[in-house]
Every structure is written in structure tokens, then in C-alpha cells.
Amino acid sequence: MPAPIPTLCCGTRFGRAYLEGLRLAPGFVLAGILARGSQRSHQLAARYGVPLYTSLDRIPGSIGAACVVIRSSIVGGAGTHIALDLLRRGIPVIQEHPMHPREVRQCQQLAADAGTVHYLNTHHVHLQETQKFLRLVRDMRREQPICFINGLCGVQVLCSLLDIMGMLLGTVMPYAFEDYRPTPRHILDACGVEAFPYEVVRGHMAGTPVTLAVQNYYDPADPDNNAAILHRITVGFPSGNLTLQSAAGPVLWSDRLHFPRDIFDMENAVRPHSPASRLLSEPVGPSPVHLVERLWTQAVAHALEEFRLAVEGRDPFPDRGAYAQALCAMWAERMQQLGAPHLVRLA
């Protein structure tokens, strides 16, 4: 078995999920942390028994991979600058979303020139219940086609929602969406709200009808929170629909109901005594502690396993680079189409 790759973790906010995820990923071993030098960063470096670097110039040549868990340029961070520096050294990089498509192209081109790998991670697609959802949809597609996909999310996680939808289809290309019409002012005034709960855009991905409903506002005092529903995806089939209630589950199947001409003659209905809906997950969902400390870190480990395969030239998704560029282009276009999120004080 190959020796684990000495890995640098860049960032210690959401990067903490990567620090734990690296423990669960046998192909990697944490070899250092890159951060600004806050008290939290010093404490984490001490806890994991690794050096803390506050400058890229101090990173040793023994580093064999890097996790860049710092906001990219499009959301006001230095993540892409750091990723580019590491790629120039030939160090493979897994980087957290979202990224502008131009940044993705730049990182991928530099990775190709350096003979290494840049892997975009949208995180939520790797959660256990989301992976179950993807497997169930793939199994059903062997027997019947997808009729439609409806996706609903907070604006903060639109990119990861689009990735889950793309993985359902195996691609996001080609795609097209209708012109967006914002909620009229008189509707907002009648409801007494500054922003409508969800703005809707229709289109298609790879020829499949798609409806997006996006909560395009957040509280500027707490921008990473207050999504009424983080993710929700329904995939329609001729026989019914499969719904992922959130990226952490549960998964629910609902039959497409078909009643006989005489509605009270139900014995002639299709499967008259079968449950019309079935829960395909545990009856009780995860607690927030379990979600953050276990499921998120397991999702990171799952992404790292895919990253390792890509580094070894064994990526099961050979068009991942082109897919990542198309995904981020679609995300950036939808964000531009919807306009800047409304800033709404919710407290």
C-alpha cells in the first residue's frame, strides 16, 4: 500500500472539518497547517502535533498535497492565490467551492503545466445521505428516465446544489435558463417583506427540465446562516419522485398516484394497498453536533479519496476538469442573473 501523502491544510475555520477528515482518509497524513497565526490556529496546530506556517515561503518541500479551505477570490478571500502558488510547485490541490470559472480554468491550466491536479470540492455532494440519493437515482435511471429535477436552496450553497444536480445527470452540459423576472414590488409590499422567500428560474440541464428556487437574501450580520432550507432536491420519474430533504437527508420516495375512473373502486387502482410514500433513511435525522463532527468530516474523507484517485491518475470521472469549469460557469451566470443577494436583518 502506498505511503500516505504529507498534506498541508490551509485555513482553520471550515478547515477544521478537513483536519478531522484527513484522520479518516488513509491516503493522507496531516503534515502542517497554513493560517494567519490566530490563537485558534496555534491551538489546532498544537492539538494535531503539526507545524503552523503563516507564510507560503515557509512551506517545506516535503509537502505532497494541499487542502485549500480559504475563500476564493470571487468571495473575497486569498484561497485561489494560495492554490496557484502551491500548484506552481507541483503540489496537487483540493480546493473548497465556490470559484469563478476563470479561477478554475487558471488553476487547471497551471496544474496541467506542472503535471499535477486541481480538484474542486463542493462538499455537500459527498455527504452520506446525498451519496445514497445519487446511487438510488442512478439505479432508477436504468429502468426509467428522469422527467424533471426541482432544486431549492439558500444562495450560499447554490453551487453545491447545482453540483448535486449535475451528478444526478452525469453532466451539466448543455444547459440553458429562461430570463429571470424578479418578484414585483407590489407583491413584496403586499407580503410586508423586503425579499421574497424564493426566486424561481426554469431551464434545462442536459435536456432535463430543471426548476431552481433560490433564497436570494441573507443577514449581513450572519451571512453563513439563516437559509430556511439549505438544500432540497426532487427528481421526478414516470412512477413517482425521489426527494432529498436536505444534503444530510432524509431521502423520501413518493409514488405517482393514479386513481381509477371510479375513485371509490380503489381495488382496481395501481398497488391499492402499498404505501404511497416510503422513508428511505433513518426515522430520526442527525443532530447538529453529529452533522458537523461526524458527517461533515466523513464527507471530507470521501472527497479526499476521490482526490487521491485523481492524483494517482485513476479518477473515475475522467472529464472532471471540464465538468468543474461548466459547473462554475453555470453557477456564476445564475448568480449574475439573480442579482446581488438582498441584505435583510433577521434578528
Rank of each mutant, 00 (worst) to 15 (best):
L212S: 03
T234F: 02
P209K: 00
A269Q: 13
D179L: 11
G236W: 01
H186F: 13
I229G: 01
P223R: 08
M205F: 05
V214R: 09
L212V: 00
P220W: 02
L212C: 06
V210R: 00
E267K: 05
G203D: 11
V214W: 13
R202D: 14
E199I: 02
L252V: 12
V200P: 01
D179W: 11
Y198E: 09
E267G: 10
R261G: 11
P223H: 12
M266R: 15
L257E: 15
V235F: 02
R232S: 13
A247P: 03
P197W: 14
L212F: 12
H186A: 10
F259R: 12
P223A: 06
V214Y: 05
D265E: 15
F259W: 13
A206S: 05
P184G: 06
V201N: 03
L252M: 10
H204T: 04
R185F: 10
L252F: 08
A195P: 06
G192Q: 13
P275Q: 13
R256E: 14
A213Y: 02
P238A: 07
A247W: 00
M266S: 15
A213I: 09
G249C: 02
G192H: 13
R261V: 13
L257G: 06
E178S: 11
H231F: 02
T211P: 04
A248D: 14
E194M: 14
F177T: 01
L257W: 10
V200K: 08
Q245V: 14
L252Q: 02
V270N: 05
A228L: 13
I187A: 09
M266Y: 15
L257Y: 07
F264S: 08
R202N: 14
A221L: 07
D224K: 02
I233W: 06
Y217P: 05
P197Q: 15
G236A: 04
D222C: 09
G207S: 09
V251Q: 01
H204E: 05
I263H: 10
N216F: 03
D189Y: 15
S274M: 12
F237D: 00
E199F: 09
G192L: 15
V251H: 04
G203I: 08
R271W: 15
L230H: 09
V201L: 11
R256P: 04
S246E: 14
V193N: 04
H258M: 11
N241R: 10
A269K: 13
F196D: 12
M266N: 14
S254Y: 01
Y217F: 15
V214E: 09
Q215T: 03
P238Q: 00
V201D: 08
E178M: 11
I229V: 07
H258P: 05
F264C: 06
I187C: 10
I229Y: 03
L244H: 05
E199Y: 08
M205D: 07
A227G: 04
E199T: 04
V210E: 05
V270T: 12
E194K: 12
Y180A: 05
P250G: 02
I229T: 07
H273K: 07
P220A: 09
V270I: 13
Q245N: 07
F264P: 01
M266W: 11
G249I: 10
V251N: 03
A206E: 04
G207R: 08
A221V: 03
Y218E: 08
L242D: 00
V251P: 00
R232E: 11
L252D: 01
P184N: 03
V201P: 02
A213P: 03
A195D: 15
